[in-house]
Amino acid sequence: MLILKRKPNEAITIGDDIEIHILSVDGDQVKVGIEAPKQVEIHRKEIYLSIQEANNEAASVDVLDETLAFLKNLKHQ
């Protein structure tokens, strides 16, 4: 993990096309702005984890449903 100190109105660059701007600091809250290409998905960590969990659940349900359908077809043959 890289740790950097930044003040309001300063920025950090990631690669050639992502910039993170420190907009303000108010107590223990930091407001950041992120400039990135539209194809780069940006989420808060808790939202990202929620999306991953939902995707994993959906994938496991699909596999289970497909397996059950396959077994039913075998039984009827």
Rank of each mutant, 00 (worst) to 15 (best):
V40D: 12
D26S: 15
P37H: 07
P37Q: 04
I22S: 01
D26T: 11
G27I: 03
V32K: 01
I12T: 06
G15C: 13
H21C: 08
E35Q: 14
D26I: 14
V32I: 10
G15A: 15
I12S: 06
D16G: 15
I22G: 00
D16Y: 04
D28H: 06
D28I: 03
I18T: 08
H21F: 11
V30N: 01
E41S: 12
A36C: 13
S24W: 03
L23H: 03
D17I: 05
D26P: 02
V25M: 10
S24Y: 02
E41H: 09
T13I: 11
V25W: 02
I34G: 14
V32E: 15
I14V: 06
V30I: 09
D16V: 04
I34V: 14
D26N: 15
V30K: 01
E19M: 13
S24M: 04
H21N: 12
E19L: 15
I18G: 00
K31S: 06
T13M: 05
K38M: 05
Q39P: 02
G27D: 12
K31L: 10
I20G: 01
Q29H: 14
I20K: 00
I18N: 02
G15L: 06
V32H: 04
T13R: 11
E41M: 11
K38D: 04
A36S: 15
G15I: 05
D17M: 07
I20M: 10
H21P: 12
G15E: 08
Q39D: 11
I22R: 00
K38Q: 10
G27W: 14
S24P: 01
G33W: 01
Q29S: 07
L23A: 03
E35C: 08
K31F: 06
I34C: 14
I18K: 00
K31Y: 14
G15Y: 05
I14E: 13
G33I: 09
I34D: 08
V25I: 15
Q39T: 04
E41N: 12
V32A: 13
S24D: 15
D17N: 13
K38C: 04
